[in-house]
Amino acid sequence: MSMTPLLRVRDLHCSFRVNSGMIHPVRGVSFDLQRGETLALVGESGCGKTTLARALLGLQPPSAGSIQIEGNEIAGLNRVDLRRFRPQMQCVFQDPFSSLNPRKRVETLIREPLDVHQKFAPEERRRRVHLMMEKVGLPADWGRRFPHEFSGGQRQRIGIARALILQPDILICDEPVSALDVSVQAQIINLLYDLKSDLGVSYLFISHDLTLVETFADRVAMMFEGQIVETGPAREVWCNPQHAFTRRMIDAIPVPDVTRPAPPAFRLEAD
């Protein structure tokens, strides 16, 4: 393909100093995210997936490597220069409780991105906020409420509305449903899926849950010890894992189906 990918990451390294010395959570990660695609980044805790997300969002400067949005390099930019690219890439956080300012009303929270980038006249901003609330399934007359009046799932809807109102090309979702109950998790995943075709946004979906990703993502990148060890279509990775780490993970995932044998890691004979 000769088309420039929406997001191109090449040989990205992140390292930083902690009390006990240098740590190196991301060790040479490369991938492309195409327009309209959902790419899932899957790994266990400490594999570097969250640091990678922070680097992409400009919250943590990478120590080496390149990040390009439609061919524009953003890896070395300072925060002021980065601001120009902000509307193109937004994010949804894991914790629905700490990711919204508790003292702002919902309509303010959703409108703020437009205020910051001074898009549209005030009247148009209001209209778009209402439209966005409708799209994510929040009753329009709840705009005057504060975040603490909402459940976890509803707060995550507010977070999604806030991230998508700038009409970004890329939405980075960092474990957006792992703090939610199963039934609510399904609501949010379905919502994200519907919004994707509606708004033409591409997802980089960071998760520890391969079963969830398998239903939702087009492509999966398995991350292990700071590197991507395997990529492929989601179904392919699930059915035919290539890397030892992927196999070990799949062997340990309990599928809620009693008619199949227990996954190998659950069998007592394995001892």
């Binding site: 199963v182 849950d209 939702f216 809620p256 189906d257």
Partner: peptide
């Protein structure tokens, strides 16, 4: 609950 749980199978 069972239907809402992701199940690749």
């Amino acid at each position: 609950l069972l239907d809402a749980t992701p199940n690749p199978e």
